[in-house]
Design a protein around this nucleic acid. Sequence first.
DNA 1: TTGTACGCGTTATCAC
DNA 2: GTGATAACGCGTACAA
Lengths: 342, 342
Amino acid sequence: MTSSFGKSKMITVHDVARQAGVSTATVSRVFSGKDGVVANKTAVLVREVALELGYTPSEIGRSLRLASSRIVVMIVPDSTNDFCADVAVSVEQALVENDLSMVLMNSGENSGRQDSLLDDAESLRPRAIVLLGALDTPKLRALAKSSRDIIFVNRRPTDDIVAPYVGIDNVAAGRAVAEHFVSQGFRRIAVVHGPLRYAASRGRVDGFVGRMGELGVGPADIQRFEGPLTMEAGYAHGQALCADTTRPEAVFCGNDMIAYGIHRAANEAGLRIPDDLAICGFDDNRVNEWLAPWLTSVRVPALEIGPAVRDLILGHNPEAVREDCVLPFTLNVRASTLGQRV
Amino acid sequence: MTSSFGKSKMITVHDVARQAGVSTATVSRVFSGKDGVVANKTAVLVREVALELGYTPSEIGRSLRLASSRIVVMIVPDSTNDFCADVAVSVEQALVENDLSMVLMNSGENSGRQDSLLDDAESLRPRAIVLLGALDTPKLRALAKSSRDIIFVNRRPTDDIVAPYVGIDNVAAGRAVAEHFVSQGFRRIAVVHGPLRYAASRGRVDGFVGRMGELGVGPADIQRFEGPLTMEAGYAHGQALCADTTRPEAVFCGNDMIAYGIHRAANEAGLRIPDDLAICGFDDNRVNEWLAPWLTSVRVPALEIGPAVRDLILGHNPEAVREDCVLPFTLNVRASTLGQRV
DNA sequence: TTGTACGCGTTATCAC
DNA sequence: GTGATAACGCGTACAA
């Protein structure tokens, strides 16, 4: 015996129309919010019959007719990353209030996978495609060129793709961290960042290194390590750093996951934080308040992203469609970088 | 000016057919995997033209024709909960390998919201609806009765709803924790659990209390607190517990989020763990290894849930459709419950 | 091997 | 206020 999933016969407008003794058009009118046009008595009858029969309007049929679905596709690199999860929830909540649904897809930071997902996304004829951490691929460029239904969150693959952007000013955030590091007297630095093909990673590093230079700390004093934005990657880099005799005084991490990994490596190496090694994260995941209240991090307002994305999709803020929606960030300074060197 | 989202004109089979000089049927055949039936030369030509025109088959049209979509709706209580996020990713990854898409919806542990989402879900005519942490509502009962397309993960709202279940044996897990607590000599206990209207919460508590009783610790020695499965709720309960002069020796938490909250409250109250207060969580979130390596917790194999759900949907394991798919759990004992009282 | 024609469920248009 | 009808994009039975 085979599964019966997805095979059950569905009630349609025709069933309701026949049972209620009205036309399909009337049933449709009742369920597409045009109650005003229908006689109150009729509308009540139709709703009654529909409830009795268990009728739910088909989004498929509606989408076909209207040539536009109520689905928004959101592609994230890894939704087990706390920050991604927060952004996804934020977007989903903002959308559901406007009767839109969100399809969540994980690209795994993989170009091929992203392109394959973009195909899947396109086939759903979504109202919009939201990309968190987009990769610069030919497919993405083609899509961005052919439609205006793409929104980039947090990082834009390249500057020459014209599409709305929602996120923080990564360069400014990098500069803020640099100023904090210098104020604490840190001069030998390591930066453990995400792949530089991401504009966000690049922006953070460039802002940081640039400002450090202006403040008198040259590139020679700044080691750089590139890798995935994961705890595992942070752990590996952390182990290497801690074993080094010329260990840096402070590490600037591409995100909090990396910071968690480095923290674990430092702990296992018996280093004290921040005395032996200062750590600064990025994103300031909500869980920090509970499990890592010591971690200095750049707070990205994840929960404000959803409403901004929704406004973009609904065109609530037309003049912003062509402009970037830059949200404010905050450098939350906590124990992990509060050295007494000053 | 209004937004252009979702309004761009789409390429259809007709466009490709005209351009390639073939019929729409042939184009359709090429893209529905029936390449074998089409002359190789024709198939190549069609693909060429399609690529040139940027054609992607519409899932809308396909779904309408086939009376079944490739969408699976997953409803979770809160996908910012690490455990939920892991399960969602696990399911999404398993589905995407079989060309299915996942729509993620957050119910926020709210009955009304869940029912509203079930309506939305139904309207998408999904292949299946997967519920993590389902609430027992009339709507859900009606849906479960009218179709076999529902899968319950981790908790089943009530025992009388017949539908596939994927998850652990919560009663057995509760009993395992009880045995561990007794082996450590804990006799004055607090249980901070989730809402008892959830079968999973009930199972954990019942198993725990029942086994404690068998081992000589009666209900009088076990305080119970009910609340949301959040860090905030755990924190609030933790503050109350820590302020109590007749503080318990150990706390069994309904999930890890609650445990994080209690840990913070205990820390702020200056209590040492486990000497002043032992803590046991539930789920064993992956982040524990990194940020809470001290937390004893019941490991639920979140990443094995996706494949199990997929098999159920695809009917890979027909005889299991009517049976529960019970996954193994592990009690991971760590420092937070290793008292020296024995 | 390929083309023709129909219908899936819905809504907009037009006529009544 | 309501009904009949066409059209949306696709897959397939049937005819060629």
